[in-house]
């Protein structure tokens, strides 16, 4: 089957996701307007500045359609800023708050790992992706500080004080990573998401 995955292209590193999807034989579609969500099997919300993406999404009437998209149960993956936008609750927002899409029952701390001086790369052990450990690039990264009952933890890493913090989760068809698989050459995260999308699409009876 032909899987089509949208990449929210309001701002940020959307081209990097598209490159990786193409390497997996998936056709990416850039989403800037509500009508571009039609016909997609899955959606990636990339890294970038979540405040910028939220404001642009609001201006072009994308917030409500994106909420409806997530609520419909279609597979959606947020990386870094995308994870913040998918979170039900975010702390450390700009004065006056920022528009969120929500759906993922977690609380994120927006700049948990600090400023650029604290940006880092490391290796993560991710059971759903198997061995070897996977390289992860964290840029002014958020972390998940609280999860709801239906949320599975996929990966943790050491926080600034050495404590274990959650950096990747899954809740049904929602996937969220605090880091940027699109900045590496390892296709495993994208392959994992594509498999979720393919599985979901094949479970829907055509025409139903």
């Amino acid at each position: 089957m032909n899987t089509t995955i949208g990449v929210l292209a309001l701002q940020g590193a959307f081209l990097e996701h598209e490159t990786m999807l193409r390497q997996l034989g998936v056709r990416p579609v850039e989403v800037r307007k509500p009508e571009q969500l039609t016909g997609l099997d899955g959606l990636i919300i990339p890294g970038g500045e979540s405040t910028t993406m939220g404001l642009v999404a609001e201006r072009w009437g994308l917030v409500a359609p994106l909420k409806a998209w997530v609520q419909s149960g279609k597979p959606t993956w947020g990386t870094c800023a995308g994870m913040i936008l998918l979170a039900e609750r975010a702390i450390g927002q700009k004065a006056g708050g920022q528009p969120l899409i929500g759906g993922l029952d977690v609380t994120v701390n927006r700049n948990y790992f600090g400023r650029q001086a604290d940006s880092f790369e490391t290796l993560l052990h991710v059971p759903v992706l198997g061995e070897p450990p996977i390289r992860a690039v964290f840029i002014r990264a958020p972390a998940i500080v609280e999860i709801g009952a239906g949320v599975d933890v996929l990966a943790t890493t050491a926080g600034r004080a050495g404590e274990e913090v959650i950096v990747a989760v899954q809740q049904g068809n929602l996937l969220a990573t605090a880091f940027h698989p699109e900045l590496t050459n390892d296709l495993r995260w994208h392959a994992y998401f594509v498999s979720q999308v393919t599985h979901h699409a094949s479970s829907i009876v055509p025409g139903a």
């Binding site: 292209a9 940020g12 890294g47 970038g48 910028t52 870094c80 800023a81 840029i139 002014r140």
Partner: peptide, 9 residues
Amino acid sequence: GLAQMLKGG
């Protein structure tokens, strides 16, 4: 990586 996050902005 940070510059990549600023793209389209």
